[in-house]
């Protein structure tokens, strides 16, 4: 039976601190996960899984602030560092040790760029954390509705090439008893969805094709039932690409966490 998100008690760090408690992990939701309608569904899926696995977690809620990633990649180092220092102050005040993010951009920024500015934490992308839960026996994944379906995984640049994590998402998907196929460009060769480096927030430069359409062509060539993603921006780009090709009834774009949630009927 699927749970309602409102039935889950979602603690903020402030609430926990007031009770004198510290959670096992801080779930860093990210801006897309907080505000974008499609990405909010991913956020809820992650929360439902954490709740199901009895992970003690908290969010920063209104104390969370953009990591500064889009500003940094677009060249605004000032704004990035202002954001970073603000976030680090907040997290250090709560003595945060371990962070799980719902977005590879937040993951990369906090993991790699915050330490030099005074914020050192153990940072995991949600696929990595879910893999840990699975290895620890806290999360059991079975095929469910994805059994026998053809699934492909689109590597997010900031999880794959940027941080060398290609396996965690695939290890999770493998458990769904599905047919996991690779697109012609995958892993280190994976093609960007087109959203990184600030592109999400601007018109594309002049060219003869949109990057997300180029990537969607790779997807269509494979004809999967589901394209699994691990990033809210890839989600937007591929969802739009599939829709533009009028294939949204044949090909679903889903975050790994949503697939696990659905397979377990959470």
């Amino acid at each position: 039976m699927a749970t309602n998100i409102t039935d889950i008690k979602i603690n903020t760090m402030a609430e926990m601190a007031a009770k004198g408690e510290t959670p096992e992990v801080l779930f860093w939701v990210g801006c897309a996960g907080s505000f974008d309608d499609r990405a909010k569904k991913i956020t809820k899926a992650i929360v439902k899984i954490l709740h199901h696995c009895n992970v003690s977690f908290a969010v920063l809620g209104t104390e969370e602030s953009c990591t500064g990633d889009p500003a940094k990649r677009a060249g605004n180092e000032f704004l990035f560092q202002m954001q970073a220092m603000t976030n680090i102050q907040v997290m250090n005040a709560y003595q945060v040790k371990k962070i799980v993010t719902g977005c590879p951009h937040c993951f990369n920024t906090i993991k790699n760029e915050y330490p030099e500015l005074g914020g050192t934490y153990e940072v995991l992308h949600h696929s990595q954390f879910l893999q840990q839960l699975m290895e620890d026996g806290r999360l059991k994944i079975e095929g469910g509705e994805f059994k026998g379906k053809k699934i492909t995984f689109h590597d997010p640049c900031y999880l794959g090439r940027a941080n060398g994590e290609y396996e965690a998402p695939r290890n999770l998907l493998q458990k769904l008893d599905a047919e996991l196929s690779e697109m012609k460009r995958s892993r280190a060769n994976g093609l960007c969805c087109g959203a990184g480096g600030g592109q999400m927030f601007k018109e594309a430069e002049k060219g003869n094709k949109e990057v997300n359409i180029e990537r969607t062509d790779d997807v269509l060539e494979l004809k999967p039932d589901v394209v699994a993603v691990g990033c809210p921006f890839c989600m937007t780009m591929l969802k739009d690409g599939v829709k533009l090709n009028e294939k949204e009834n044949e090909i679903e774009v889903l975050d790994i966490s949503e697939m696990i949630m659905r397979a377990k009927d959470l």
Binding site: V29, C31, S34, K44, S65
Partner: peptide
């Protein structure tokens, strides 16, 4: 504190919205 024009006060609204 977000790349889009949303109010920071609404950051946790998702927790109150059932699909």
């Amino acid at each position: 504190q977000a790349p889009w024009q949303f109010s920071p006060a609404d950051r946790l609204n998702w927790a109150k919205e059932n699909d």
